[in-house]
């Protein structure tokens, strides 16, 4: 799977599950301020990534470097595939 495709699927996930009307989700949009704003959203995003992309995620992966924006998140998924 290409990074662009991963990014597109993540974008679709965030816009469907955690809609934020009025905000256009760009690859560099701050996810932690606008979409992943509580612990439930962290774990449901993790569950989505595990089931949709077939990757295994650990607690040590939970960090701002990973969840900062679509770019960092897609890089992370790509590295796990």
């Amino acid at each position: 799977m290409e990074k662009q495709q991963i990014k597109a699927e993540l974008k679709n996930y965030f816009e469907t599950e955690f809609p934020n009307p009025g905000l256009n989700l760009e690859p560099s949009t701050d996810l932690l301020s606008n979409f992943i704003t509580d612990s439930l959203r962290v774990v449901s995003t993790v569950a989505f990534m595990e089931s949709h992309f077939g990757i295994d995620i650990t607690e040590a992966d939970i960090g701002v470097e990973t969840f900062r924006d679509l770019n960092s998140l897609s890089d992370f998924i790509f590295s796990k595939l």
Binding site: S39, V42, I62, V64
Partner: peptide, 10 residues
Amino acid sequence: MLGLGLQKPI
């Protein structure tokens, strides 16, 4: 308001 180990380093 998110803590959970997700604060940004400075």
